[in-house]
Design a protein around this nucleic acid. Sequence first.
DNA 1: GATGAATGAGGCTTCATTCAT
DNA 2: CATGAATGAAGCCTCATTCAT
Lengths: 228, 228, 228, 228
Amino acid sequence: MSVDHRSRNARIRRERMRARLIEAALFVSAEHGPDGASIDEVAGAAGVSRGSFYNYFFTLPELLQASSHELGVELIELVLAEIAPVTDPAERLARGFLLLIDAGRKYPLVARFAARMAAVALAPGSVAHAVLPPLLQAGMDAGRFVAMPLPEACDLTGAPVLASLARLALGEAVDSRIVVQGVLRVLGLPEPEAEALASLRVTLPPVADDRLLARTELVRQSREEGCA
Amino acid sequence: MSVDHRSRNARIRRERMRARLIEAALFVSAEHGPDGASIDEVAGAAGVSRGSFYNYFFTLPELLQASSHELGVELIELVLAEIAPVTDPAERLARGFLLLIDAGRKYPLVARFAARMAAVALAPGSVAHAVLPPLLQAGMDAGRFVAMPLPEACDLTGAPVLASLARLALGEAVDSRIVVQGVLRVLGLPEPEAEALASLRVTLPPVADDRLLARTELVRQSREEGCA
Amino acid sequence: MSVDHRSRNARIRRERMRARLIEAALFVSAEHGPDGASIDEVAGAAGVSRGSFYNYFFTLPELLQASSHELGVELIELVLAEIAPVTDPAERLARGFLLLIDAGRKYPLVARFAARMAAVALAPGSVAHAVLPPLLQAGMDAGRFVAMPLPEACDLTGAPVLASLARLALGEAVDSRIVVQGVLRVLGLPEPEAEALASLRVTLPPVADDRLLARTELVRQSREEGCA
Amino acid sequence: MSVDHRSRNARIRRERMRARLIEAALFVSAEHGPDGASIDEVAGAAGVSRGSFYNYFFTLPELLQASSHELGVELIELVLAEIAPVTDPAERLARGFLLLIDAGRKYPLVARFAARMAAVALAPGSVAHAVLPPLLQAGMDAGRFVAMPLPEACDLTGAPVLASLARLALGEAVDSRIVVQGVLRVLGLPEPEAEALASLRVTLPPVADDRLLARTELVRQSREEGCA
DNA sequence: GATGAATGAGGCTTCATTCAT
DNA sequence: CATGAATGAAGCCTCATTCAT
């Protein structure tokens, strides 16, 4: 029993430390890019010692990968939960992309991270790759999208959205309606419908305080206060 | 006269050395990415000493930038020359993108470079940014494309093509017909025309032996022979 | 307790490492001058790795400064302790200078260091600058020395002594009696008194084995043994 | 004949080039110290190529030595010429030192150079060492100065003057009357006479435009104009 | 586990020197 | 002779990694 208890405590502490490192890696790599980060800096940002890092990860890329994965999962889960009730594949895709660009707008770190980590984030095996193809396939199966090979379909739809996030990260304005309407058009939707779906109003649900997304906001706010 | 001769010789030699460095940078950054390159490695690949690098460039990013620029210019000039006789903006765009993807197929280094250097290659000020917007604008002005803001239009058309190059670089197959058809569709072309234009047969003209593009081929061939 | 113990041990080890670096810097800069020293050489002389240097100092000048300061403080403390009982300002100065030149004779490294580091050692903010002016001022206030501006007084008294140390460092003989008598003369002391004070017999007290001064001796001895 | 003529021309050109290098070395080492100079910088300041340097000197220290020597000779010749008519050794010394400090005031580069190059400038074999001892010896032989060993006499008189120049180089004020009076006092002159001699008014004669000293002035002036 | 000292490999940059033109 | 390109040795610094406490 006491052993159990102790080990449970230990496990919880481990989780928390891991989360702190992942969070720190997120900030640091959003700031300096994945290649600009150093173990020292990440550990410092997490408030732990250099040596501790090695108790949780073997290499820096491994942590960055975990960091990217974690954020991606949170983001995707948020979006998927939001579009879960929607049954029409076209509307699902439209809402999903609109929400994603909105997330980039609301959470600047997300946009910056997406821009910086595009190579990692889109690599096969990433969250994005797991989610987009099924959505597209479903639309084609339902006859809502014109049939086309999935890889090309991903390039035609996912890449513009990612590019939009990158532009957001640079501080430029992005009209998500235009982008999503184009994406739907490329999938063969009739123009009026593409326009209607791209004009849907979507809202990101609030996220729990302990999620990565919420933490990125906190950091942003504290910085603004710090500056003001 | 003799002064002239000497200085001309010197200038030519300088040019050649510079070209060697740029070429080497191309290979190295295509291999390891822009952040994986080191001055040592580039100099080594060029067959010159570490110190020589500093006689031609101040920093590595400067060389990479020059390298990216040089290749981009060659590529763009090649494509532009090929589509120069074409007057219809839609056909120009279709042929241009088809040629570009073809170039990625024919010159694997180009694809790899495009994939690795996306961030650099697409940054404002790059060759791509100078070429695509006017093409799109011309099409809209001519009423061939639906009107839409240029930035979003770039994201919707350029990003899929770049993504295709990236996929090529990974060794995957890419059906450029599908991609270009989609790009034309997103620009509002009627389906039959989009299909027709995307089905055009294009051929990259041969390039002079001293151009970067040709040199990338030579390297590839010599490597294959080396392996075989 | 255990924390205390660990951190105390750590602190002691840090101190020791720092001391080793300072000591090494002393030898190296006495040998090659402050501009001839390199981080590599100092670290090597201290028997530690290049990287360790950076765990203790930011720059080489910082270490040299620390080194100079440390030795200066030891030397000054030694001399000041010795002349503490003396009340007559003239005798204090005479004994102080005699002891200093004696130190240069007894500890060749001190002389060499003084010669090499004159620029650093005499810069405003150095130990020498903190000690000599008050001594001179006291003598003038007491009417023992003729009144004159302090800066010029420092030049007239301190510079000859430093020059003597430099000559010692070159292996030449120095008659400290002559030098000190001259210094007292320039301060206006009547000749017989100047001669009497300059003829005082002084002896440097022994120093603890862990002081820098003692360590310089050890090194000298070990080298002589090595040669013999 | 023509050979003679050509070789004479050549010799003159060589001399000029050598002079330019020496002058450049003077400026550069006065600016950054003897250890801060590089061949590149000196050659650049002289307006010649790196390679040319090696046609005139083997090493940088050799050039610096020549530079120091040249300036020292000019300065000494200037002072010696000025005090040539004076027969009293004490007055010769007084006037000489007064002129020297004046030179430091009038030609800041001289002061800075003296401060920076003290080690080189006072090394045995330097100009200073060739001039001061005979002056002192003459005074002792004539019974004007108290007898004392020459090395110590040099330290007691030369070092304060050099220290004064160093202080001038730092931008501090120096009362040469006080310094020279002290120097005479240390040599045993009766107080009234020391004061009288130290109060002599001396004036540096103008120097020809092609002398190093004059060139240092030109540089200073052009800089001031540049700033203004 | 957590810590941070110690290490040394690896990249960067400067600069003296050589040498072909 | 003058030039400046090429070289590589040598110093600087960062940082991933190991390890004793």
